[in-house]
Amino acid sequence: MKTNYLMLHTITRIVALIILSFSVYLFFAGHYTPGGGFIGGLMFACGLLLLYLSFDLNKIQTVLPIDFEKVIAIGLLIGIGTGLNSLLFGDPFFTMYFDTFTIWPFGEVALTTTTPFAIAIFLVVVGVALLTILTIAGDEA
């Protein structure tokens, strides 16, 4: 019996895009308002998971050949690296640096070293969530 997933596929294509972009918005909102790396990462993982659910596991893996183990490792490395950069200036580990820059076309932008740390959390959360779920899903037995 061939099942027809037309509605699921069509809606997923639209909704996944919205979820993924909203997760990026949440990520950047996180510095002063609710949001941040953890929430953003979870929502990003949910968006990807929706794709995995509605399409086939193998099909998505050919489109997005990502090794989530490596994603976790890279995330952790970025996180440690953010802490380590303060050692270069002889400050204690994890000292935060903050300054405002004028960058075209955004105008005045506040840049801080906590942002790469949030990216690190984002990557680790995405990696862990998807690795866990895909490992269980890929279990044949």
Binding site: K70, L76, I80, G83, F93
Partner: peptide, 12 residues
């Protein structure tokens, strides 16, 4: 920090 950093690199 050293074992944490190195452990992470080893995953790669």
């Amino acid at each position: 920090l050293a074992p944490f950093l190195i452990g992470t690199i080893l995953i790669l």
